[in-house]
Design a protein around this nucleic acid. Structure first.
Lengths: 206, 206
DNA sequence: ACTAACATGTAAAGCGTTACATGATTTA
DNA sequence: TAAATCATGTAACGCTTTACATGTTAGT
């Protein structure tokens, strides 16, 4: 039963978790965290285990998900699995359609350091940018891997995995760009430290 | 005097605010919020007024900043202005040099909606992407404007504004890419909805 | 037998926002 | 003289993480 005492709108994270369930599968908190790391992670952040567990409780309280315990074979262990309800499908659909998204937020730690370049040695700035390139390339490769995973296992009925695949394609390009942006800034940095060759003198006019 | 009872490491936001002070100016909380909106905002998020005020108190308690009240002319109004201390400069320099940055975090609300494309109408997805393009272009233009502002007003002594300008240049490219990524996804979406012309048949072979 | 990974949570604490309160200054 | 902006905070609240607690399963 839905507990309708909570009239406050749910935070985006709740909808993200309910979104993971909206593909129709019955999943445990642990499963949801893994799915989250392979999808949400690339364009939204992936919530911690403990938050996923508490979001699931909230969703159940709201009537948007139902749970049951599953006992495995002979062991006494029981795991709790969640499934989206009809009410939940209606609610998440309405949220996705009607609630205008907040502007994207970027928290870019490395760029924060580079902004404080007057406190760093040039070598440290280069190091930061190289690490950033590596990170971006690694994320890009993971997005590619998860995209092919999602396409190879189209599973059964459920909704098409076309849109998740589309966002992973977006992520692939996003991290490629992130990688190239680091490379470009590396060049800008060299121009700055070597004023003998001003940037306008490179690659202009034959 | 520094209150050394607090041994916990400061959160990144504290360093960001101290970073704003590390350029040497004496600034009020209000000033800092404005600076933040014109620099940090593009690659890190801009904290709220109330958080800036509480961060300033924490920085003063830690001995990293000092404040004094300034009375304007005849009015009884007094404003509090902050300046970084020597200890503060040392601390923020060490933080920037020694503390490895967390990986960049992106919270992309529009992409979260698009990932749930099976809950939306195609027209709504197009609308989301168009708004995203607009947003990205607006941010890009603001970064350009703030970059020229920063270069035109090199002010007096202080550290060079070269590194802030560099990060604004990065932001300019970042938001240009964000804009183009939305356009690319718009095309992918059309390919998806019109399977008569598969994507591989566009622009390949003569 | 031991270790790593699986699995499910609770508790405490801090981060960060929104709403609220207050008052001065400037502009229309 | 009314409204908008400048300016400085406090209080309440909720989001989110880290640390902790507990036990199972699978591999070596």
């Amino acid at each position: 039963m839905a507990d309708e005492t909570n009239r406050r709108p749910l935070p985006a994270t709740s909808w993200a978790v309910l979104g993971l369930l909206s593909f129709g599968e019955e999943l445990s908190g642990y499963d949801l965290k893994k799915r989250s790391d392979r999808s949400l992670r690339f364009f939204y952040w992936s919530p911690s285990f403990s938050q996923i567990y508490s979001e699931l409780k909230r969703l159940e309280r709201a009537g948007y998900a139902s749970s049951r315990t599953v006992a495995q074979e002979t062991g006494t262990r029981d795991k709790r699995v969640y499934r989206i309800t009809g009410t939940g499908m209606t609610a998440v659909r309405e949220w996705a359609r009607e609630t205008p998204p907040d502007p994207p937020v970027l928290k870019h730690g490395p760029m924060l350091r580079l902004w404080l370049g007057h406190l760093l040695e040039p070598e440290q700035m280069r190091e930061l940018l190289l690490q950033q390139q590596e990170f971006a390339e690694e994320m890009r490769l993971r997005a590619v891997a998860d995209k092919t995973d999602a396409q190879d296992g189209p599973s059964q009925d459920g909704p098409s995995s076309a849109y998740p695949a589309l966002t992973l394609k977006w992520a692939e390009r996003y991290y490629a760009s992130e990688r190239d942006l680091a490379a470009a800034m590396l060049e800008d940095l060299e121009d700055l430290e070597d004023p003998a060759v001003p940037p306008t003198a490179r690659g202009e006019q034959p």
